[in-house]
């Protein structure tokens, strides 16, 4: 079997953020692969929540959207959407949320609304908020997952759709956010955490074969590094086989290592 691609390494790193028994808010695409992997591996009791109103989904096929009928059949509960947001998110019943983004800044704030300086006349109109602000505001932990380049890792967001650590320091707490804030940003180049006091993003590991200079070139600010930047652990062969053969057998999200073809990441396709 060929070694893990960068995109596959990204999905594995994301899957390791799921703890057994977590109630996890899942988007489609890469987060969905990560959570399915976690459930088949180290976190069999993870509970999957979808903002479409599903709690405890057990999809028999790979869901194409967060409202796929396969999420309903066999689920533990289906709620009307206001109840999902009110009770599971605002009510504090969500452990972990995965989010994508078109832009992220050094404090883990996200933009999925517009590209360009003028909201009324955007250069690119993006999908907007969906459930992201509420997931980031309320979940105990938030993990951001996106493919990385310099246009996405920006020093200043064109629009703040979703609050991460706000302006850093204790500014998130000052806004009154009950949830725990972003804990990781995971890309196809590496894994980032946040400084416990300044709340600034810190590069913790790079994927195999990625140079730190390559990462710096894909970040629009002066990136801070952990004291020791490690190499992201490689996926176990049996988990890699599971991902390729059972979870995404057609390569819909990850492509095939040889072809490189895949749907776009979660930045444009959260719902």
């Amino acid at each position: 079997m060929s070694p893990a691609t960068r995109a596959e390494t990204m999905v594995f790193a994301a899957s390791r953020e799921v703890e057994d028994g977590d109630s996890v808010f899942v988007g489609v695409g890469l987060p969905n692969l990560a959570v399915q992997l976690a459930r088949r591996g180290h976190a069999p009791r993870a509970r999957l929540l979808y903002e479409s109103g599903v709690f405890g989904a057990r999809p028999a096929r790979l869901p194409i959207s967060i409202g796929d009928p396969c999420l309903v059949t066999g689920a533990a509960q289906v709620l009307e959407m206001p109840a999902m947001f009110q009770y599971f998110l605002q009510g504090g019943r969500t452990d972990l949320g995965f989010l994508g983004a078109a832009q992220v800044d050094r404090f883990g704030n996200l933009n999925t609304t517009v590209v360009g300086p003028d909201y009324r006349r955007p250069r690119v109109r993006l999908p907007g908020a969906g459930g992201a602000p509420d997931i980031a505001w309320n979940a105990r932990r938030t993990v951001v997952i996106l493919r990385q380049d310099r246009r996405k890792f920006v020093s200043r967001l064109d629009f703040r759709t979703t609050v991460g650590w706000a302006e850093g320091g204790r500014s998130r707490e000052a806004l009154g956010a009950p949830g725990g804030g972003p804990t990781r940003v995971i890309t196809d180049l590496g894994v980032y955490g946040f400084h416990p006091e300044t709340r600034e993003m810190i590069l913790e590991s790079v994927h195999a074969g990625v140079a730190i200079e390559e990462v710096r070139a894909a970040v629009g600010w002066d990136l801070r590094l952990a004291p020791e930047v490690r190499v992201t652990p490689a996926p176990e062969p049996e988990m890699l086989a599971l991902l390729r053969e059972e979870i995404d057998p057609k390569g819909i999200y990850l492509g095939r290592p040889s072809s490189g073809k895949a749907l776009s990441g979660p930045s444009t396709s959260r719902s």
Binding site: S65, P122, R123, R125, P127, A129, S264, S269, R270, S271
Partner: peptide, 21 residues
């Protein structure tokens, strides 16, 4: 009046974008 705008899992609504942009 909306909350999320797109072709889920695929891409953009270009007719809406042409009107907005």
């Amino acid at each position: 009046v909306f909350g999320w705008l797109g072709n889920p899992g695929v891409g953009s609504l270009h007719a809406v974008r042409r009107a907005v942009e």
